[in-house]
Amino acid sequence: MKTGKDKNKPDSEEHVDKHENVEGQTVTEEQETIPADHQMPDVPTDTLSKTEEELSEMKDKYLRLFSDFENFRRRTSKERLELMKSGGEDVMTALLPVMDDLDRAKMAMENATDVDAVKEGLELVFGKLASILQQKGLKPMDAKGQPFDADLHDAITQTPAGDEMKGKVVDEIEKGYYLNDKVIRFAKVVIGA
Score class of each variant (00 low, 15 high):
34 I>K: 02
34 I>A: 00
34 I>C: 09
34 I>H: 02
36 A>H: 01
36 A>I: 08
36 A>D: 10
36 A>C: 01
37 D>N: 09
37 D>P: 03
37 D>L: 05
38 H>K: 03
38 H>S: 11
38 H>L: 11
39 Q>F: 04
40 M>K: 14
40 M>D: 06
40 M>I: 04
40 M>A: 03
41 P>G: 06
41 P>V: 00
42 D>Q: 14
42 D>W: 08
42 D>E: 12
42 D>Y: 15
43 V>Y: 02
43 V>T: 02
43 V>H: 01
43 V>S: 00
44 P>Y: 01
44 P>C: 14
44 P>S: 10
46 D>Q: 10
46 D>H: 02
47 T>I: 07
48 L>K: 13
48 L>P: 04
48 L>Y: 10
48 L>E: 05
48 L>F: 10
49 S>A: 12
50 K>C: 03
50 K>R: 08
51 T>H: 05
51 T>R: 14
51 T>N: 02
51 T>C: 14
52 E>T: 08
52 E>K: 10
52 E>H: 05
53 E>Y: 13
53 E>H: 15
54 E>R: 07
54 E>M: 08
55 L>K: 02
55 L>N: 05
55 L>Y: 03
55 L>S: 04
56 S>E: 07
57 E>G: 13
57 E>S: 05
57 E>W: 02
58 M>N: 12
58 M>S: 02
59 K>F: 03
59 K>P: 01
59 K>L: 11
60 D>K: 12
61 K>V: 06
61 K>T: 07
61 K>M: 05
61 K>Y: 12
62 Y>I: 07
62 Y>V: 14
62 Y>N: 07
63 L>I: 10
64 R>M: 15
64 R>C: 09
65 L>Q: 15
65 L>W: 09
67 S>H: 08
67 S>L: 11
67 S>C: 03
67 S>M: 10
68 D>T: 13
68 D>N: 12
69 F>W: 04
69 F>M: 07
70 E>R: 03
70 E>A: 08
70 E>P: 01
71 N>A: 13
71 N>M: 04
71 N>G: 01
72 F>E: 09
72 F>Q: 13
73 R>V: 03
74 R>A: 15
75 R>K: 04
76 T>F: 01
76 T>Y: 05
76 T>V: 14
77 S>V: 02
77 S>F: 05
77 S>K: 12
77 S>M: 05
77 S>Y: 03
78 K>E: 07
79 E>F: 07
79 E>A: 12
80 R>V: 15
